[in-house]
Amino acid sequence: MFTSNKWTLTPIWVMTVMFICVSALVSAAAESEHTPTYNIGRPASQAEIHAWNIDIAPNGEGLPSGQGTVIEGATVYTNICASCHGLTGIEGPMPILIGGRDTLTTNQPLKTVGSYWPYATTLYDYIYRAMPLNAPQSLSPQQVYAVVAWILFRNGIIEESTILNAQTLPAVHMPNQKGFVRDTRPDVSRMVP
């Protein structure tokens, strides 16, 4: 066994230990610094990132300021969307946006925003980035919030009086939010080769 006097905490011993600990912390911090290998390319500016950083996360991160109402959305829909999705969002020819609730287990599942989409934020993301087909990324935040509100209202997900903005949109609960599971394949039993 060790004798007690061999391990007395003298001031010089404590200082040595502290020095080692601080050195280790400094060295760990240095390791996490960015050390490019090839030095090819250049740093991106905040303005360049802002110009392209259009994705909207399920928690609402990325949503711009602005707002939209169901009433405004009806006008946006009629003027910009109805020619492809139909007068009320169910006629097509492009994907049906409304209805289909409780059909996913039937012989004719109808996958719409209301019956299938798990996050309301995805609707904002997609409409801004890709709609309308002939002029993607042309709608204003107000137009997108408004038409999202109209589609969600028509699906019975929000009230007609709801105003959508960066705070209220991520709070919208989608009926099929818990309908998705991770990949469980290979799911078909293997045979003996």
Binding site: L104, T105, P109, Y116, G179, F180, V181, R182, D183
Partner: peptide, 11 residues
Amino acid sequence: LMPDGTARQFT
């Protein structure tokens, strides 16, 4: 979409 109405994601 699976028969029980759930959908596999990131397949």
